[in-house]
Amino acid sequence: MEISGVISAIVIGIVIGVLGRLVVPGRQHIGILWTIVIGIVAAFIGSAVAAGLGVADTNGVDWVEWLIQIALAAIGVAALSRARLNR
């Protein structure tokens, strides 16, 4: 992966993390850095899942891939927030 690919993955991960955080209702007990990390991980895993399902490379915007990534980010944000709250 080239440096431009890594930078774009980080930027997309930030967007995915923020959108995932907005989907989760209530207050989350994690910082913005954790949100970004979760978003980046969700973006990579979501891309792999979408590729496995055959919906990653379509003409136009890959809405299904974005929905998978946002759902994974929301699950990650909720799980980490709950884990940090129960400490």
Rank of each mutant, 00 (worst) to 15 (best):
V23H: 04
A83S: 02
A42L: 05
V37C: 05
I14A: 12
T58D: 00
L67W: 12
I32K: 01
L22Y: 14
E65G: 14
A71V: 15
R21Q: 07
A74S: 11
P25Y: 05
Q28W: 14
V24K: 00
R27F: 15
L80P: 04
G31W: 13
V41E: 00
V49G: 13
S8Q: 07
N59D: 10
H29R: 10
L53Y: 14
R21K: 06
I30D: 04
G5C: 04
E2N: 14
W34N: 12
A51M: 10
S81P: 11
V24R: 01
N86G: 08
V41G: 03
A51N: 15
G54Q: 03
G13W: 05
R84V: 15
R21D: 09
I7H: 04
R27E: 12
V49Y: 08
S4N: 09
G54K: 04
L22R: 12
A51K: 13
T35W: 05
G20Q: 06
H29E: 10
L85M: 07
R82W: 11
V24L: 01
F44K: 13
L67P: 08
V41Q: 01
A79N: 03
H29I: 12
V37A: 12
I16L: 03
I68L: 06
H29P: 13
S4I: 13
I12M: 06
L22G: 13
A56I: 13
V15H: 02
Q69N: 07
I70N: 01
V24C: 05
W63I: 06
Q69K: 14
A50Y: 14
I68N: 02
S4R: 03
T35F: 11
G17V: 11
I10L: 12
A51L: 12
A78G: 10
L67E: 02
L22I: 15
Q28I: 15
V24Q: 03
V55D: 04
S4E: 03
I75Q: 00
